[in-house]
Design a protein around this nucleic acid. Structure first.
Lengths: 193, 193
DNA sequence: CGATTCTTTGAAAACAGTCAATCTGTGTGG
DNA sequence: CCACACAGATTGACTGTTTTCAAAGAATCG
């Protein structure tokens, strides 16, 4: 549904019909079924990806086969590996679908062209980048200063509207503890209320 | 030394004498002595700050009075609290000088003016922001997936040229362990070699 | 329904934090 | 220039937290 992406854009910036058509002309829509990959470790990520429906996660897999979740991307958010995108290096991450999803893809060079043509889009992208940076700083702060229990509480606040869509072991992975530990944290916080 | 800042800029982008003069006209130089604050928690951060000499750290202080270091900024790097800057909200962080330092300050509105006038500067800022984002993603990844010892090793690699300027308890704070734990980690990794 | 995945539980081991004491090196004031 | 104070680093003993491993219950999906 390209309309969902257009709606997202028009909600943030004002675009002429011509501009909207230009954007639409370089879009590729991709449907992903649950568990299907959008990006696999080693691939070079060359897109800007907007989640129009569904839910993605970005994660790494370590030598022991354990997943470490870097990010969740629900509908109306962006996904991708910026490091691979800007440096052209193989990605260290995987992205797959937690739910059946629909993704709007724009190739790197097309996206750069759009940013050159549409100054507002460039500004939007920058604003998003600034916010992403602040969000990641906040997560770093949480991870070096909070206890595991506080990280979990913080997670619940920050993702309150999404928690019922995220399995518990993925929350554990995101905050950096084992699933067993998260179970015990939950038991304790329930007891202490 | 405004020259150091000019040199940094000219190394990254090409500026006409007029542009350089424009930039210089809005600069404020501030000298900080070791332990002196550039920003204190609760203040609203309104600058872009470039470290021309010295070494700053950005940190929070929790209820127990413990420092948690978010960032180190040596000479030729930027410092500040982007969250406070873009939202106009009181900062949760402190910035102070690890060594006597010299800072180039440009007020937010002046900086925006410069970015409007000098497209290349805007692009430079964006590139820096992208890189900062990638760096912070990498740190998040380390903090959720590595053991304390590996975080320390990773720190040593990443800051190899600076480690002799950073006291050990600050490294501990940065990677999120107590100074005692870092001592023991070091003892163990020395033993295992 | 059967298979698979997710969550919970228990017991033991590994790890990290706390507190108090000691050691080391630095720098400042007398 | 020395002595002393101070901050930083280390150590030990102890406590608390998290992981590990194995197993057993739930929940979900085809």
């Amino acid at each position: 549904m390209i309309e969902l992406f257009q709606k997202y854009l028009l909600d943030k910036i004002s675009l002429s019909p011509v501009e909207l058509t230009l954007i639409t002309s370089v879009i590729k829509v991709k449907k992903l079924r649950k568990k299907q990959f959008l990006l696999q470790e080693g691939d070079i990520w060359q897109y800007n990806a907007f989640v129009s429906r569904g839910f993605l996660k970005t994660f790494s897999i370590d030598r022991d086969g354990r997943e470490h979740i870097m990010n969740f991307s629900p509908e109306n958010y962006w996904a991708g590996d910026r490091e691979s995108l800007i440096n052209g290096t193989p990605s260290k991450f995987n992205i797959d679908a937690i739910e059946d999803s629909e993704i709007i893809l724009i190739r790197k060079d097309d996206f750069e062209m759009l940013c050159r043509e549409i100054a507002q889009l460039k500004d939007l992208v920058n604003t998003i980048l600034q916010k992403s940076f602040v969000v990641s700083q906040t997560r770093i702060h949480a991870s070096i200063s909070l206890t595991a229990e506080d990280k979990y509480q913080y997670f619940l606040e920050r993702f309150s509207s999404l928690t019922n869509r995220i399995p518990q072991h993925m929350i554990a992975s995101y905050i950096g503890v084992t699933p067993e530990t998260l179970t015990r944290i939950r038991r304790n916080s329930a007891r202490n209320k």
